Simulated assay, not measured.
Amino acid sequence: MQKIDIALISAQYKNIDGYSWTSDGSNKSAIWTMGHIKPQSKMMTAKHGFTWVKTKGIYFFSCYAPPSLTAEEYERMLTALAFEARGKHPVLIAGDFNAWSTTWGSTRTSRRGRVLLESLAPFDLELLNVPGKFTFQTERGCSIVDPAFANSTIVRNATWTVSSTYTYSDHKAITIDILMGVENSDFRPQRAQKRGWKRQSFDPEVFNMSWNACLTLDSAGELKAEGMTAVVSNCLSKACDGTMPRLSGRPHRKAVYWWNSHIAKIRGDCNRVRRKLKRACGTPAVDALLAQHKTCKATLKKAIQANKNRCFKELCDSVNVDPWGKGHKVVMRTVKNPRGPQPTCPALLRVVVSTLFPY
């Protein structure tokens, strides 16, 4: 039997009592952390259609959008999902969206698929699905309605597969294996940034709109006394994020794209020989160590260049699969000037769109 650490569940039969089980407000999506995996934090206020849990430094979102939802209800759920996911990194969003799109291999793009992609567009998310791999099968046919999205730091170290395990459902079980080894520097805890904003760009009118929108989205269900402080603090932080840019703290230095465990081992061997060479100065062993150090440096240089070539080839191949994916982002970062922070408040964006496009 395959060992599962975290289960993202849609349309569950019943809920389980305990801190390891987290369900949405409609009891149609849930997250179950198993074994020694414990939630670091979880959603304080239950929303309809999705819930989230943070564990192992990753935010996991489980979603379910039943076919009975109207177009307005579907868009409202995705707006709340995007609002809740803002500021959370790294993040993995998966579930049964009942949405079709050629992006994940469907023969057509439905309204739901287009709205889903538009809602997640502001985030640095990539598709985990293997395009064309069916996730739903009945006697009438097959389809792909269970897309999964994640940040590039997760996608580089994850494997998405459709399991052959019988689920007593028309939906197939999907497994996502995420490499969390010590050599993977993408998941190292980041240093805390300054908790502040650039107050000189404060706009009272925009802040009021962001605050009212946050209260509207967080008003589903009654708040318990112990969760009131956390919810109000979260709304205040989101309203400030929608009004002012953050103060720039000391940025976390991320690993370069070509770095892997093999290169780390070669670099460690090279440094080990270099230290021996320094200690051997003035001894008969210095010539042999000098030649060994040159060999290690040449091996390290070749390994780095080979992995750079491999990453570039993978980037070029990915353009054929997803023209608007990572390859497009890399090119646009080169040809465009740095841009300032874009507005993300749903209420403010709604006013901007209605003003620019009144009809």
Rank of each mutant, 00 (worst) to 15 (best):
L116Q: 00
L128F: 00
G95Y: 02
V231S: 03
D186R: 10
K3S: 09
E205T: 13
S318P: 03
E222P: 05
G325W: 03
L117S: 01
T33D: 10
N208I: 07
H262V: 12
A303W: 09
A347D: 10
A192H: 12
V91H: 00
D177N: 09
I178D: 04
C214T: 13
I154Y: 02
D317K: 10
L315S: 05
G87Y: 05
K3W: 05
R339Y: 06
N337R: 15
N271H: 12
F61D: 08
F312T: 06
C63W: 00
Q40A: 11
F136K: 01
T165Y: 09
K294V: 08
Q2D: 11
I58C: 04
I37W: 07
N129A: 00
H262W: 09
Q292F: 04
R246D: 04
L277P: 06
S261P: 02
T243D: 10
R274W: 11
T55M: 01
P341W: 03
G113A: 07
L120Y: 01
E226D: 14
L127W: 00
D203Q: 07
C235Q: 09
N212Y: 10
G249K: 07
A347L: 06
I93C: 02
Q292H: 08
I37M: 08
L236A: 14
F123N: 04
S185L: 14
T22G: 04
F134A: 12
E72V: 15
F149R: 00
S164L: 12
M44V: 13
V145Y: 02
K194Y: 09
F207I: 04
S219Q: 13
H262P: 06
P204T: 01
G95A: 02
T138A: 04
A173E: 13
K224C: 07
P323Q: 07
K47V: 02
Y74V: 04
N157C: 11
N208H: 09
K278T: 15
R253L: 12
S119W: 04
P284Q: 11
K198P: 07
A11I: 08
R199C: 14
